[in-house]
Design a protein around this nucleic acid. Sequence first.
DNA 1: GCGCCATACTAACGGTCGTCAGCCAGTGCG
DNA 2: CGCACTGGCTGACGACCGTTAGTATGGCGC
Lengths: 218, 218
Amino acid sequence: MTGVPEPAVPDGDGRRPPSVRPRTVPGRRRAEIAEAAARFFAEHGYHTVGMREIAEAVGMRGASLYNHFSSKEEILYAIALAMTEVPVEQHIPLLDAEGSPADRLAALLRAHIRHLADHRVEHLVGLRELAALTPEHRAVITDHRRYYQRRVRDVVAAGVRAGQFAVDSPGRAAVAVLDMVNGISWWLRPDTDVDELVETYLGLALDGVLQHAREDRA
Amino acid sequence: MTGVPEPAVPDGDGRRPPSVRPRTVPGRRRAEIAEAAARFFAEHGYHTVGMREIAEAVGMRGASLYNHFSSKEEILYAIALAMTEVPVEQHIPLLDAEGSPADRLAALLRAHIRHLADHRVEHLVGLRELAALTPEHRAVITDHRRYYQRRVRDVVAAGVRAGQFAVDSPGRAAVAVLDMVNGISWWLRPDTDVDELVETYLGLALDGVLQHAREDRA
DNA sequence: GCGCCATACTAACGGTCGTCAGCCAGTGCG
DNA sequence: CGCACTGGCTGACGACCGTTAGTATGGCGC
């Protein structure tokens, strides 16, 4: 599990012998490239960074990158995809676990913020450079994001029904909470205390925006 | 007041006769250009948009833009500057008016969200394309932003002292609130009901994040 | 009415970019 | 041993970019 999505197997043509195993860790280089690219993209923006610059950072020449990615856009797509697939596949199940809506949402937010802090630059790129993706690729990313947002909205609504949360519009509140936590990636610095950050934002989101456990309803 | 900052007068050489007044509205064209550029930048990103594309949108050729802006980066700077100067000069005074911290912060947020909704594309560009600015220009923008943020933090702290707000860290809460409202510019659609939006977010920020008027302190 | 200046134009330059074609070294498998 | 394949390399191409120089024009102030 390198964190970088493998290239789609060219399906429909399973000519590859089933026992073939590449000598080195598969996609190892691919992951290095995506990681370096994400650093540059985050700092200077997708379009200002050239293939030759990315290549130099991993010790090769620009043209050689095409042995690992079919285009520059595909590098960006791999980064953006990793930042939306992982949350969907690994965080959403937390919403399907046992426990109250507040507990489940808290678990999700904890995982979300930790993931964001561990992959700050990729997260920033995934947020900011959406416009540079192919329409098809962008659609995949935004679909993931919409699904994620919808699931958060649903658990907020469940919390409202259960009397745990008090908001007028679960949809608006979900968006607000996600924008609030995603905003972290713009200013997070490497020396930030992540544990403290997570707990602070959990408080701001649950006790705050969602007014968890406030009893003074008329 | 066109909304687009005039070019800095080349100071140190005040050769221009003091009574000279340009025949047309000064900077009219400049504002049109910046507006068109902001639309394109917001949709496709700064670096994918060419000068010839911007020019075509206002009915001229690429090279003619240099009669109004000295470089492409200066167009971006004008946009970003307008989106940080106006809030600082027009919204911050609301914090110095009379009234409780909660009232003053509510007034600021109201103005902030309205301004954002009225200039959605420029706001988005100002947030997203910071990296494309000259270091000097970027410093100006971030200074404005830091000051704004500091003033919000101060009024939050004042509200905490006055017993109106209940948050552990006014700084963190201020950042969270601003990220939350600034996130609006990523998804706002032209047909959104701005009045409803403003009131919803005021509730989420004050009653929510800042726990305005919650009395159940231990 | 003359001159000036703002503003537009055309043409072109130098540079950079993404990408590709073709070549070559090494390495593991049969 | 030899073969194929992976993953590097060089060199180059065509497109496009931001920007400049030089020129034309039309309206306002004197």
